[in-house]
Write a protein that binds this DNA or RNA. Structure first.
Lengths: 161, 161
DNA sequence: GTCGCTGCAAAGTCTTTGCAGAGAG
DNA sequence: CTCTCTGCAAAGACTTTGCAGCGAC
């Protein structure tokens, strides 16, 4: 269904992520704690764009004994964002959502009915963006694009509205 | 310097905006108040992407006698946004910025050094977005794109950093 | 052992809401 | 006149911070 997900690579990918994270911590004299590991793991395995609150909920559900505080979630997300291991998205609604940034660059298409976020990449647009940036005299650092629309599922259930 | 700004059209454009706004209010049994007019006027004349707070400041500066409250600014912006007369942008940082939506569609390139926002449109990307959306089975409603980089001015003063 | 990390609760931001008087239609 | 708006202040939502004990190294 989704050509971009290759399950056979997940473990390898996650292990790399984890060791990158450990390295990052070591380089900065920070400690590798269970809470930090769990946050990374949840971000990785959930494959979703999570709000800090949703992430916190998920952690309490999967690892209830840890009794992780929301403050730790915020602190770790900030840490990960500063280190560019995760990216934050703020689409209109209140609050941010986070996703792992280790994945390849991609853009988002958001269903305005059900809120689902789908990812995509288009090489043609990528190149065009680069050109526009240069034409305007900028040095490009990053970019993001969102399309808002109604997904196939919601189109079909549209009659109920 | 900016090919997209045509000063001869500004008054006409603003008057249209204003009468659209009055019509909108009338259609919904709402009242046309000085505060609402001033908010629209400031949004129009400032040509910038304003935060509610910045807008409030600007209003207090230009129309100190009105003593406009921040709550009114928020209420009016929500009203304008619902009616699609303004668009809100949320680029990473806390809080939203607003811009008049009556202008033609455009995207944004943001300088990560000085925060300046430049607008642009690229027909090629527009069309590509449409195609992608269709390919993914979505019905497109709107879209937004942001490029982050370093503007020409900041590149030159980069040495000071 | 040391020094950073964590949970808790308190403090900050930004935004929304309730209310009584002011003002548009 | 009526009914919506407004400013004010209080309440909410989300995020950050201070602190004392806990745990990684």
């Amino acid at each position: 269904m989704n050509a971009y997900t290759d399950f056979t690579e997940r473990t390898v990918e996650y292990n790399k992520l984890l060791s990158d994270f450990k390295q990052l911590l070591k380089d900065n004299g920070l400690k590798f704690t269970i809470q930090r590991e769990v946050i990374l793991e949840m971000l990785y395995s959930s494959d979703e764009h999570l709000t800090p609150e949703a992430l916190h909920h998920l952690i309490q559900e999967k690892h209830p004994t840890l009794n992780t505080g929301i403050a730790t979630v915020y602190r770790t997300l900030s840490l990960l964002e500063e280190s560019e291991m995760v990216t934050s998205l703020s689409f209109g609604a209140q609050g941010k959502k986070y996703e792992l940034g280790a994945k390849d660059h991609h853009d988002h298409i958001i269903c305005t009915e059900c809120g689902t976020i789908t990812e995509f990449v288009d090489e043609q647009i990528e190149q065009r963006q680069k050109k526009i940036t240069e034409d305007l005299g900028f040095i490009m650092q990053e970019h993001s694009m969102q399309i808002y629309g109604i997904c196939e599922t919601c189109q079909h259930s549209q009659t109920t509205k």
